[in-house]
Write a protein that binds this DNA or RNA. Sequence first.
DNA 1: AACACGATCTACT
DNA 2: GTAGATCGTGTTG
Length: 207
Amino acid sequence: MTVSGTPSILAKAADPRRARSGKRLTRDFYARPTLKVARDLLGKILVLETADATKTARIVEVEAYLGGRDPASHAYRGPTPRTAPMFGPPGRSYVYFVYGMYYCLNVVTESDGVAGAVLLRGAEPLTGFGEIAPRALAGPGKLARAFGLTTKHTNLDLVRSSLTIRDAPRVTASRVARSARVGLNEHATTNKPWRLYVRGSAGVSRT
DNA sequence: AACACGATCTACT
DNA sequence: GTAGATCGTGTTG
């Protein structure tokens, strides 16, 4: 921010939202308030490089999970072995196992020591899924399964590892929709509209 | 050591 | 719309 409110060239160059399509998102992108990171992750490209292939998909649905003040967050009651990544440095992965058969991928936000994460809930496959590629990865379990992610992929550094996110053009505000988060216990009052998705995308789990 | 349950998905009525 | 699959995790005893 500048004193006048008009972004200087330097401030603009430092803005983590600025488009650098194709390049890895850097640490400063993740080291921000969770809701802003969630919003800006829409349209970005999730990438996993393996010996076989490089899988890529466009992120179209996310949910923000704030730490200590968010009763729906795994981090609400303090760190445990499972949730430790949420309290660690930004730009890491947090993968957890649910319902005895599914994995969910999160991106860790906020500064080191402050809990926060964005759940990746839906994506549009782009490359690396073979001839019979699915048309959509709608739902966090399906997304993680399509990428072959397990708890072995938790706490990986997205800025340095083979699991990463590449920059891509920002989704326009008119195409972004918000709703309450999915699959939470009662606590309707605490279920804020922190689910963000791209209107009309096949990769969105529900509308 | 035992227990209750979950940031889900699929199949079936 | 509802039930069943299936097991790691956190909590309680």
